[in-house]
Amino acid sequence: MVQIGYGMLAEQAGPRQLVDHAMHAEDVGFDFSTISDHAAPRLPAQGHAPYTWSVLGAVAQATSEIPLMTFATCPTMRYHPAVVAQKAATLQILSEGRFRFGLGPGANVDEHITGDWPPVDVRLEMLGEAVEIIRELFRGECVSRRGGHFTVDSARLWDLPDQPPPIGVAVSDDRSCELAGQLAELMVAARPERSLVESFERAGGSGKPRIGQLAVCYDTDREAAVRRAYEQFGWFGLGGQVEAELASPDSFEAATRYVRPEDVAEAIPCGNDPEAVVDAVRRFADAGFTEVALVQIGGGAQHDFLAWAEEKLLPDVHALGGGGAVAA
């Protein structure tokens, strides 16, 4: 059975609203939750970018059972790996072991605020080094090192959970899959590509969870759903490499000027037909993913979506099989 999560998109709602949404998602019966960790929205129409770690701390106290996860934190520029390790360890304690630590190489729009944006091969080197530092700190070690990208001087985590949070690494190509397979307990991806799962498993990820993310736009009026998806997710489908390089919400807006509403509607299930979402989740399951987080587009539409999901959607998507090991 594929596990179904609820994705908190921090670019489309304020911090108090996000906590409220997470509480409702737990009540509805989602299997887990994720949250984005960005410094800026992708389009100005989204309108928000609260500090994810403050939101997560509040969610950890406002909920009691639903697992939490970053999807995904970049531990290399905006956050030093030693600092982000402290955040994750603290959250694992606050949530009583419900946290999974999704990491990724980041995007220019978020990370450039603290320095120049490096090329992708350097970003992956930085991510690998960051994961090594985080793991040493999670083991309770006093860490001092001067690596290729980071300096750590006598760092130690004084509050450690009984079990460190599992680390996930976001993947988009063979290089990132190799890194995830070697260093992570789980794989994170935004697209249902079987080749990613195969590459991850060849690199050491066999039997480990593979977590996808699916944008949806629920509304009883399908045309209204398409308009909302176009206004807030018009950048969707540009491709991971393009998205990673854009430097500001205005850049995203300029890059999507030739995207049409119907283009977005082809990529994102819009309206209130549960079968459209089931079909989209099935593509992840068929590709070998074990979990899928649903991100509802529109900060003001979350409770309607959650009520619909409880009544119409979750029983069907929970019935899907798939997510098993994929033969290389």
Rank of each mutant, 00 (worst) to 15 (best):
A254S: 04
T256H: 03
V264T: 09
S248A: 05
G239Q: 02
R260S: 07
D263C: 07
S251T: 12
Y258A: 15
I268R: 09
V259W: 10
A244T: 06
F236L: 04
E245S: 04
L238A: 09
N272D: 15
T256F: 03
V259R: 08
F252M: 05
G271I: 15
E253V: 14
N272K: 11
Q241T: 06
P261Y: 15
A247H: 00
A244Q: 07
L238R: 03
A267L: 10
Q241L: 06
S251P: 05
D250F: 06
E243L: 12
V259K: 02
T256Q: 11
E262G: 08
F236H: 08
A255C: 02
D263M: 08
E243H: 05
P269R: 11
D273V: 09
S251A: 12
E245C: 14
L238H: 14
E245Y: 06
R257H: 15
R257T: 04
P274M: 15
V242G: 03
E243F: 11
Y258N: 12
A244K: 03
Y258I: 03
A255M: 03
E243D: 14
S248E: 12
A244R: 13
R260Q: 15
G271D: 06
A247V: 01
E243G: 10
F252I: 04
C270Q: 06
P269E: 13
D250P: 07
A255E: 00
G237Q: 03
V259E: 10
E262Q: 06
A255T: 00
E243P: 00
S251F: 13
F236W: 10
A247S: 00
A254E: 08
L238E: 10
V242Y: 13
A267I: 06
D273P: 15
G271L: 10
V242F: 11
A254T: 07
I268Y: 03
A247Y: 01
P261E: 14
A255K: 00
E266P: 01
G271S: 15
C270L: 04
Y258T: 08
E245R: 06
N272C: 14
P261W: 07
R260A: 04
G240Q: 04
